[in-house]
Amino acid sequence: MTTLLAAFDLLLSLTLLGLAVAALTSAEPRRGVILFIAFGLLLALVWARLRAPDLALAEAAIGAGLSGALMLAAARRARRRRSPETAPRPSEEQP
């Protein structure tokens, strides 16, 4: 039981670190933001395992969800600024 829990802890920590490295090293803004959202959701899972369900709820909703939504909008603006001729015009864009 304890060994199983320790293995689970190790797996969670390694996945968390891997996602953080992937989010921090991706040069494409949108990819980085999506990886950051995945990182936030996994962090919420880890906190639920560390007996902090209040924080897991808040992190999933605010840390991953709202920060992610804000940054995705910013990534979209950044991409439009970089290539204004290939991006759709504002009147045609999809949300």
């Binding site: 803004p29 962090l43 940054m71």
Partner: peptide
């Protein structure tokens, strides 16, 4: 944007 993601990961580390 990358600096902001980095700051948020730093903050997540402190919270963790």
């Amino acid at each position: 944007l990358r600096k902001l993601i980095a700051i948020n990961v730093m903050g997540a580390g402190v919270f963790h």
